[in-house]
Design a protein around this nucleic acid. Structure first.
Length: 156
DNA sequence: GCCAACGTTGGC
DNA sequence: GCCAACGTTGGC
């Protein structure tokens, strides 16, 4: 089982939105960056755990946890001309873009702000600190447990 | 709203 | 294949 950090703008899709989905499950679609796409297509597996991060707001933060319930498959929004994520280069034969499905797990008792992440030397290696634009990022087990601890969650 | 970082595109 | 121009992201 691997760990990831998924970024989203809460004005577009928030952690509360995920909780309010049927079965608390939703497609993670719309990723249009090749490095992030490669993670979704090749590495993200069912059962992997996800830090749910809110970006582009006054206080960006990890707000909760989710789990992957379906591994990478073609992102059909790229084929839909009415979708804002439509990509004319994508086709059923060559979907180009991939998505996974995620399910809500639980909110952190205390969101872990980017500011706290940046000031924790043990988290300096997180891509979030140096490569903030990458929307799908791997997280190490140590980083995962540190974030959960900072978020007020008991971890074994 | 600004701007730095960085990814993508396209001319050559 | 290089690199300048351009577009997007996201912190502030």
């Amino acid at each position: 089982m691997a760990f990831w950090l998924f970024k989203t703008e809460p004005g577009c899709f928030s952690f509360d939105d995920l909780r309010n989905c049927p079965d608390m499950t939703e497609h993670w679609d719309g990723v249009r960056n090749f490095q992030a796409r490669n993670f979704l297509r090749d590495q993200v597996q069912v059962g992997d755990r996800v830090l749910f991060y809110h970006s582009n707001i006054p206080e960006p933060a990890v707000v909760g946890l989710a789990e992957v319930v379906r591994a990478g498959y073609p992102d059909f929004t790229a084929l839909d001309p009415d979708s804002e994520h439509f990509d004319p280069k994508a086709s059923p034969q060559n979907p180009i873009w991939y998505m996974v499905d995620v399910r809500y797990l639980e909110a952190l008792p205390r969101p872990v702000t980017l500011e706290r992440i940046k000031t924790n030397p043990l988290l300096a290696a997180m891509p979030l600190v140096s490569r903030s634009r990458l929307s799908i990022q791997p997280v190490t087990a140590d980083q995962w447990h540190m974030i959960l601890s900072m978020g007020g969650m008991k971890t074994p």
